[in-house]
Design a protein around this nucleic acid. Structure first.
Lengths: 224, 224
DNA sequence: GTTGTGTATATTGTATACAAAATGATACAT
DNA sequence: ATGTATCATTTTGTATACAATATACACAAC
C-alpha cells in the first residue's frame, strides 16, 4: 500500500516563511529587543512585498514577540525580568500538567524514547558539548509533551519555550553539576513509568525550579 | 495636575475591529464551525477592503479559532469533544495556578471584591437570571486572575475561555444546585484569604471539575 | 543655546490590481 | 448513471498604489 496522502505540504505561503524567519531572528536575538520592524526594509531584505511581512507581524504580535503601536508600527518586544518570571511561572504549571498526563498515557515505547534521549544528554555532557546538551534537553521534554496526547498543551508549551529561549543566554553552561539534569530526568522517567502522577509532578517542578534559578541568575548577571 | 496621557486609544486600526468582530461571531456561533471565511465576502459585509480582513484572519488562525489550508483559505475551526477536553484540562491547571498566585498576592480589597461578586451571583440565582449568573461568574473568576499580577496568565486564561464559550450552550441552565456555585466560591475565597494555597487549588479544581461535567454533558446532549 | 514652526521624508493603514490556483458547472464519453 | 475533460468563475496569494500620520531636520525667533 503506497502512501496516498496528497502532499499539500509542498507549498508554504510566503507569510509563513517570513513569520518563521522573523520569529527565529527575535528568539536568537538577531533582532534586538526594542528594534523597530519596518515593513519596507524587511520586505526588501527578504525579497518579498509588504503584504506577507505585515501578515507575519500580525502573528508575532499575538505571540507577544512584537509590540504594536498604532500608526507607529511594530517593535521587538523588550526583555525584562517580570515578563520572564511570568512565563516561567506558567511553564512550571504546564510542564507539571504534562507529566501528570504522561503518567496516564505513557506506553512502554515512550519510556524507552525518554531513556534514550536522557542517555544522549549524558553523553553530550561528557563531551562538554553545550549546544548538544541544550538540544537534547529540549527533545527530552518534547518527548514528555507528545506523550500527553494534548495537542493544544504541546503548542502552548512550545510558545512559552520560545520566550524562555530569548533569555537563555546559554544558561546551561553556567550549571555546575550538569549531571544533576540526568539524575533528575531519571527520577521523572521512573515516576512516569510507575504512573505515579504525584511524584512525577513533584520531580519535574523541582527540576524546573533548578533551571529557573540559573536562568534568572544569568539574566541578572547579563543586566550588570 | 491634569492627566497628560496622550490618548492613542482613540484610533483603532480596522484590522483590530475586524478581528474582534469575527472573533465574537465565532464564539457566539454566529459563524458556524466549518463555515468558510471568504475575504471578499467578509470585506463587503464589513465595508472594508480585503487587507484588514486578511490580517484579522491571520490572528484568528494563531488563536486556533480558524483553520487555514494553503490556497483554499480559512474556515471556522470545528467543534469537537477532544478539543474541548484539551482546553478544559489546561484550564483547570491554569485556574489552579491562578489561585495559588492569588494566595500570595491577595490584598484585603481583592477579597472584598470577590465576596461582592459572589453575592451578586447569589442574587442572580435567586432571580433565576441565567445570563446574569453567567456574566457574574466570569467576573468572579476574572477577579482571581487579576489578583495574580501575571498578565500573561490572565491573557492565556482569556484565550482558553473563548474556546470554552464556543461550547457553552448555556450549560449553567442545566445545573440543578446552582447555589453550589456560591458555596464553592465561598470556600475558594476563604482559602485565598487565609493564604492557604493548597486548599485554594483543591477547591478551584473541584469547582471546575463540576463545571466540566455539565459542559461535557451539554455537548453530548447537543450532539444527539 | 533653546524653543518653536514649517516642510520634506518615511512609514503605516487601507485599497486595489494582477497572477496563480482551486472550485464548480457543463458537456461529452463510457 | 458514472466518470472525466474542459473552461469560466471564484478565491487566494502577492505586489503595488495612494492617503493619512508620524518623524526628522532645517531654520527662524527669542
Amino acid at each position: 500500500m503506497v502512501n496516498l496522502k496528497v502532499s499539500y505540504d509542498e507549498y508554504i505561503p510566503l507569510r509563513d516563511i517570513v513569520f518563521k524567519t522573523l520569529r527565529e531572528a527575535i528568539i536568537t536575538g538577531d533582532l534586538k529587543p526594542g528594534e523597530r520592524l519596518m515593513e519596507i526594509k524587511l520586505a526588501n531584505e527578504l525579497g518579498v512585498s509588504r503584504t506577507p511581512v505585515r501578515e507575519a507581524i500580525r502573528k508575532l504580535e499575538l505571540e507577544g514577540l512584537v509590540i504594536m503601536t498604532a500608526r507607529k508600527g511594530a517593535e521587538v518586544a523588550p526583555i525584562n525580568e517580570k515578563d520572564l518570571k511570568e512565563v516561567l511561572e506558567i511553564r512550571k504549571s504546564l510542564e507539571s500538567l504534562a507529566c501528570e498526563l504522561a503518567c496516564k498515557n505513557a506506553a512502554s515505547e515512550d519510556i524507552v524514547k525518554m531513556r534514550d534521549l536522557n542517555k544522549a544528554i549524558e553523553k553530550a555532557i561528557k563531551e562538554e558539548n553545550i549546544e548538544k546538551i541544550t538540544k537534547q534537553d529540549v527533545d527530552f521534554h518534547e518527548a514528555i509533551y507528545l506523550t500527553t496526547k494534548n495537542d493544544r498543551l504541546v503548542h502552548m508549551l512550545h510558545q512559552l519555550k520560545e520566550h524562555i529561549f530569548r533569555y537563555r543566554f546559554e544558561y546551561i553552561k553556567d550549571m555546575k553539576n550538569k549531571e544533576m539534569i540526568v539524575e533528575e530526568h531519571k527520577k521523572i522517567i521512573a515516576a512516569i513509568e510507575q504512573n505515579n502522577a504525584k511524584a512525577a509532578c513533584k520531580e519535574i517542578e523541582r527540576h524546573i525550579e533548578v533551571q529557573e534559578k540559573y536562568i534568572l541568575n544569568t539574566l541578572i548577571k547579563e543586566a550588570k
